[in-house]
Nucleic acid binder design. Structure first.
Length: 270
DNA sequence: TGAATTGTTATCGT
DNA sequence: AACGATAACAATTC
């Protein structure tokens, strides 16, 4: 479940392998998830230079020469691999890029929810994404506006990529716990000091998670160390690190949600 | 075997 | 009517 820190980690790892390389071939039999079409993408990519690799929210973006861009969304289980790994060819390969140095970059995704999108209009392709939580425009004031302008439950609001881009289930639970806010709190009732706390928690936890290369979750995403520092996510029944109260989980929307019932008291009115 | 998993989209309700 | 909540969906593993 790559969220912002995991995608950032992947971007940093694959950037030196990709930037400055020329794509010699692309193949994918993944009709449903490659847009506009695998054939068209192959045509557009072949012999194009990769000029940069960046992240926007949870999107991985290959910048190509001539103002073209390839957007990868890993969704639940997508990952990038290389064909020449010592431990054999990865499974669940959905797309392959052949590079001019002979290496092959693989898009692997057992659940097939990921997407590959070619576009020449990056602005409109990313128009639906909200603020970058680690960017300069994501201030406590900006977060306060987002919260106070609507009356939504905090957790679904934080998960809404059109408002803030990059938080997923793990980091919303973690940031709400750090800010000691209950996930069902109405966004318009959050006080200014709470806004500041939440803002600080989001930035601190995302930065810290990036430093640890993200959270490794079961078999899908290996390599990170953040899971050792999670305070509520996946810790149902275990004692809160602050007050020893057992962590409780329940459902918000249809997402698993984890809180310390003592540190994150339920909102008074619904 | 069914529960769990995520983001998007469609639908329902207030 | 606009907003917010909810359900369905994609596919696979355990």
């Amino acid at each position: 479940m790559p969220e912002l820190p995991e995608v950032e980690t992947i971007v940093r790892a694959c950037r030196p392998q990709l930037v400055g390389r020329r794509i010699r071939g692309f193949s994918s039999s993944w009709r449903r998830n490659v847009s506009p079409s695998a054939a068209r993408v192959k045509r557009e990519l072949t012999d194009r230079l990769i000029t940069g690799v960046e992240r926007r929210g949870k999107l991985l973006i290959f910048h190509l020469e001539d103002d073209a861009h390839l957007l990868l969304h890993l969704r639940m289980s997508g990952r990038l691999e290389w064909a020449d790994q010592p431990d054999g060819t990865p499974r669940h390969v959905r797309a392959v890029w052949k590079l001019d140095n002979g290496r092959q970059c693989l898009f692997c995704d057992p659940r097939k929810f990921g997407t590959i999108t070619y576009t020449r209009d990056l602005a409109s392709a990313t128009a639906g994404l909200g603020l970058e939580p680690l960017g300069p425009s994501f201030t406590a004031r900006a977060l306060g506006c987002i919260l106070h302008q609507r009356q939504r439950q905090l957790k679904p609001l934080l998960l809404d990529q059109s408002l803030i881009a990059g938080l997923g289930n793990i980091y919303t639970d973690e940031t709400l716990a750090a800010a000691r806010l209950h996930p069902l709190t109405r966004s318009n009732t959050v006080t200014d000091p709470q806004v500041v706390r939440l803002h600080r928690a989001i930035r601190r936890i995302l930065r810290f998670a990036i430093r640890l290369h993200g959270t490794s979750v079961d078999w899908i995403y290996p390599g990170g160390r953040m899971q050792r520092h999670l305070t509520v996510y996946g810790r149902t029944g275990q004692p809160c690190r602050r007050c020893r109260t057992p962590i409780v989980s329940f459902r918000v929307g249809q997402r698993g949600t984890h809180i310390c019932p003592k540190c994150q008291p339920a909102p008074v009115q619904r």
